[in-house]
């Protein structure tokens, strides 16, 4: 069971308090009606499946209720960092991973 740092509560807590919410930084266009079929297909269905760091969304469902973003290494399962929704993508090269 993973430990996840909630950037809103500023606590590192057991995974059971959280739910996964899909890939992060998938932006819903401000005006969806202007999207082409291909763009909308990309928004709805096309996701990355990297071996290594993956941008993800999680929700602290049983805590503060906030959705937030995370970078998780899909090889080790480790969270490299978590950050508030709306914050820019962190630079992957700066992430060492938290050992706790």
């Amino acid at each position: 069971m993973l430990l996840i740092h909630c950037p809103y509560c500023d606590e590192t807590l057991p995974e059971v308090e959280f739910t996964y919410a899909g890939q992060a930084h998938v932006v819903r266009a401000a005006d969806p009606s202007s999207q082409t079929d291909a763009e909308w297909e990309n928004f709805l269905f096309i996701r990355s499946n990297p071996k290594g760091p993956h941008y993800e969304r999680w929700r602290h469902l049983h805590g503060c209720g906030r959705f937030f973003n995370a970078v998780r290494d899909t090889v080790s399962d480790r969270f490299l960092t978590t950050y508030k929704a709306g914050a820019p993508r962190p630079d992957l090269s700066s992430l060492q991973g938290d050992r706790t």
């Binding site: 969304r57 929700r59 906030r66 959705f67 929704a85 709306g86």
Partner: peptide
């Protein structure tokens, strides 16, 4: 409720 919170928090904050 989860879906509504999702749109509210992340698309239309």
């Amino acid at each position: 409720l989860n879906m509504m919170e999702d749109y509210l928090q992340t698309e239309w904050p």
